[in-house]
Design a protein around this nucleic acid. Structure first.
Lengths: 112, 112
DNA sequence: ATCTTATGGGTTATTAATGAGTCATTTTAT
DNA sequence: ATAAAATGACTCATTAATAACCCATAAGAT
């Protein structure tokens, strides 16, 4: 049905977004890319790239990560190979985790 | 005017998104949060959280980062304090950078 | 200085993301 | 085994994100 209008973000989130935007801008300038050129290469519009560099929380994460990837900015401090390895390990780990969570009014057994 | 329909993502981007989704799911289970509970806490819907945990590139980055922040998953491998420091440093750096780019030859870096 | 162009900041039409709901299935506890 | 609840996987209406413009200004080169 209807939707909430505004959304709030923690300072931590906003700072992380601002930092990512800065890194992208720095990377773009270092690579001597024009805003138009980089946007075109990433398959997005210049106006979106502007918002990304500004750290706008409303940008889709796929667009942001793709731009970062093009500029060679490491996500999770990992290059392609390490990322793949970590993902595989993470997937195995998932299989061992419980599939559903029981919200604990009684998480801990205190009947002793 | 009209807009492109589909969007393509590099493998690196998709892997990074999948890893982030996994980390969020692991964090949620570790914190003994139900999907509903975590979504409510982050101010998003359960269906969106499901997509986030799946690594959907179409989610807004603010929503994803906010969930990560709630679970204590470090962005940029940095806690709040370090993040703030790094952002401040990054901002100073920005001031020294050229404001506009003059496209010279081409500097591409798409080998990730 | 002039000229060229990249950028910032808007506006608008359209597409896509989101919230809310439902239902079936799975999971966990009893 | 049974029950209760969490999850997965869809819909659909509405809102928000995006692309494509626009113009004004600032930045860089000559």
């Amino acid at each position: 049905m209807p939707k909430p209008i505004t959304r709030t973000y923690s300072r931590y989130t906003l700072n992380a977004l601002a930092l990512m935007g800065n890194q992208i801008r720095e990377g773009r300038i270092a690579a001597n890319f024009t805003a138009d050129a980089l946007a075109q290469r990433a398959g997005i519009s210049r106006s979106l790239l502007q918002r990304i560099e500004k750290g706008d929380p409303g940008c889709t994460i796929g667009a942001v990560f793709e731009v970062a990837a093009i500029l060679g900015i490491p996500l999770f401090e990992a290059d392609s190979k390490i990322l793949t390895t970590r993902l595989a390990y993470s997937n195995e780990k998932q299989a061992l985790l419980p599939k559903a969570v029981r919200p604990s009014g009684r998480a801990v057994k205190d009947d002793f």
